[in-house]
Computed example of a mutant assay.
Amino acid sequence: MLTFASTWCFLLLPLPWLVRLILPPKQQHQVSVLVPFGDRLQQVLGGTSSANTRPQSGSRRVLAIAIWVAVLTAVARPQWLEPPITKEIPTRDLLLLVDLSGSMSQEDFQNDAGKEVSRLDAVKEVLDGFLAKRKGDRVGLVVFGDAAYLQAPFTTDLQLSQELLGECEVGMAGPRTALGDAIGLGVNLFDENAERAKTIIALTDGNDTKSKVPPVEAARVAAQRDIKIYTVAIGDPTTVGEAKLDEQSLKDVASEAGGKYFFAADREHLAGIYNELDKIETKIIETISHRPRTDIYYWPLLVALLLSMFAKAIATWRGRRHTTPVEQDQRIHVNPITGEMEVVA
């Protein structure tokens, strides 16, 4: 699409005509000799009569107008608008805390094909679909076992987050559970002054056995920074020992941070939880649009230059056409018998 940065410049279009009306025309004073036989003399020399020597000014006037319009168009800065470029601005930071402790290897979940898979594989499968719907969010990933580790920083590249999640394996962070430390690490990852909504989703199947900071205390710190925490419990509530499921602690964490507690007994319940999270954490996508502009003022400027050169070429050609070269050794005399003027070499 063609547009002009300074459209007002076209108001100067009648300027040459106004100048011509206001300013007096240039007076030309030429010295000439008037002789009664001037026309005869010019015919003898091979020229045309003085009445035909005045060049026609119509074409020159048209060229002058075209040159002025082209120059004025260049001054108005013509620009070509490129197709709009739309960029989506993230409106929420979403951090996933994934438990990689040894109990996540128990195969008590079923996938879509009905095959028994481990808890971690079920989490990966459902999280993969969950991440695919996170358009407009910045997603980060923290894994934890004996300690918490940043697996993926906040990014809008959801495919990268999915790939890094797929590389997670049970036990790679240690056999025990440090949920409190994972929450603490997650809190520090958020930008303190960011206007985006801040959400943590923690997925774990065991009680905290390794953290230096209790999960509830870490949740209070998160609440002070306007970070919501949703806890998802994975596993069998009847399990005892270090692998037991501490539901009360997870409920307290969610309550302190303004979130909600969920229990996933199987894969269907886990998928249902993510659907519920979609309803709770509604997505608001803010977009900005920008149309690049490319200056093309040089094209009308080039046209003006070519027209000016063409006008000069026409003026030079017309001047040569109306001028007959006279050889230096030619002389004019009057024939005494006929009385006619003749050119003698």
Rank of each mutant, 00 (worst) to 15 (best):
L2M: 15
T3G: 15
T3L: 15
T7V: 11
W8T: 10
C9D: 15
F10D: 14
L15P: 06
Q27N: 05
Q28K: 08
H29T: 10
P36R: 08
R40K: 06
L41T: 13
L41G: 14
Q42E: 13
Q56L: 10
R60A: 10
V62A: 12
V62C: 09
L63S: 04
V75N: 08
E82R: 13
E82S: 15
K87V: 15
I89K: 04
I89G: 00
G102R: 12
S103H: 04
Q106M: 07
E107W: 07
N111G: 13
G114P: 03
S118A: 03
E125K: 05
E125F: 04
G129F: 08
K135F: 10
G136K: 00
V139P: 02
L141C: 02
F144N: 03
Q151T: 04
Q151D: 00
T155W: 01
E163I: 14
C168E: 01
A173L: 03
G180I: 02
G180C: 02
G184T: 08
V187I: 09
V187F: 08
N188R: 15
K198H: 05
D208V: 06
S211K: 05
V213N: 04
V213L: 08
A218K: 10
A219D: 02
R220N: 09
V221Y: 13
V221E: 13
A223W: 07
D226Y: 00
G235F: 09
K244G: 14
K244Y: 12
K251V: 06
S255T: 13
A265Q: 08
H269M: 14
E276M: 02
D278L: 03
D278Q: 01
K279I: 05
E281L: 03
K283E: 00
I284R: 02
I285R: 03
T287G: 13
R291K: 15
P292S: 09
R293L: 15
Y297W: 12
Y298L: 15
P300E: 09
L301D: 11
M309A: 12
H322S: 13
E327I: 06
H333V: 14
V343L: 10
